[in-house]
Design a protein around this nucleic acid. Structure first.
Lengths: 201, 201
DNA sequence: CCTCAAACCAAGCAATTGCTTGGTAGGGTA
DNA sequence: TACCCTACCAAGCAATTGCTTGGTTTGAGG
């Protein structure tokens, strides 16, 4: 007897994608079997193919949907007329917010994007990567030029540190836990901008 | 005594472990097949079982050997009578040096330790994790107490940022490339301690 | 009452997986 | 010569993999 909540609309398809995303995030894409997904959904593995073409098309839909939302957010920040430092602040906060709202999607991207990106189907992942790098480098360079950031920094290195540090937080951050994503962003920005050494040093 | 090829010492076993480690690092443990390893070594998959019990025992040997060496290094630093800030400095440099010397091992640890750690055989991975956390927290707390670090920091949060940022560098750092591990450590420590904002800010 | 579509089941297939088994080539030693 | 030992091959097995196929249930609409 399958009485799926009729109130929770969005359909079975969306629900299955959520289940799959959680499993992909937990065990990795390749390491998650279609039988795992089906079992978690309470159906048989073959029944998944009524909803999706393949296991690959499931991650595809999961990742592309997330990426579209994320970059829409980036676009808004960049389109504003805030100064570089404010934009940096906003982009960092946006990223921690993404971890808070879509932890599974971020985890999948962190763990499997490299491998998936080698397939033609997932070429957009590499494109988004370039796009993201350009955003960060532009903001950092603008910050250095306008004097709000240190002049002696290797901007490319700083970019990689920021990118990695922000996204890798998905490994330990838990939505609904003690720390809000805003609190994490506060501390992170404080460390990143001012350092951990005492100013009297 | 068995003296096969005195020039290429270390034996076939060591050579096979290196080949396996590189593949595990590149594609992940589960995603690397015994046939992949054998092919890279120029032999058939069955022949691997003359040298090793199982695929699991290969990662086991790779990871435990690396961990032993790494923690021996940590031990030396902690045993010294340097102050907290110097020890922090040395531990960070030691970590980037480990990435330089054993990139495959670090990558495997980063990508697969969580999953492998759930098996009893790899319980030492979790132990090492706790040990590592204690080292960092001790140093950070000592730094705060002695006044060389800011008083208003969430030490646990700082620990996670440092840990992740340091080790995640394995994703882009390439031994023998333009940047030496020492140069990366310099920049990282500078950013971590002093921040990226200009001091005139 | 009939139709139809969405959602699922039951069974299985071809490929791939880790691993086993019995054998062999070849160099060193007695 | 006879005997090992190390390193390998050749063949294959049981389990697991992603996916296919044809059929069944269920509820909404005509």
């Amino acid at each position: 007897m399958t009485v799926t909540t009729p109130a929770t609309n969005g359909g079975r398809r969306t629900e299955l994608l959520r289940i799959a995303a959680d499993l992909f995030a937990e065990k990795g894409f390749k390491n998650t079997t279609v039988r795992d997904i089906a079992e978690a959904a309470g159906i048989l593995s073959g029944s998944l193919y009524h909803h999706f073409d393949s296991k690959e098309s499931m991650v595809d839909e999961i990742l592309s949907t997330f990426q579209d939302e994320l970059f829409a957010g980036y676009g808004e920040v960049l389109a504003s007329d805030d100064d570089a430092r404010t934009k940096l602040d906003r982009v960092v906060r946006l990223s921690f917010e993404a971890i808070d709202r879509h932890p599974a999607e971020v985890a999948i991207f962190q763990n499997d994007a490299d491998h998936l990106g080698s397939f033609e189907r997932f070429g957009y992942l590499a494109e988004r990567g370039v796009q993201s790098r350009d955003i960060w480098l532009t903001l950092l360079n603008e910050g250095v030029e306008t004097g709000v950031l240190r002049q002696d920094l290797d901007v490319h290195l700083v970019y990689r540190f920021i990118r990695d540090t922000v996204w890798v937080a998905v490994r330990w951050y838990r939505p609904g836990g003690e720390l809000s994503h805003g609190a994490v962003a506060d501390q992170y920005l404080s460390i990143l901008l001012e350092g951990i050494a005492s100013s009297a040093d």
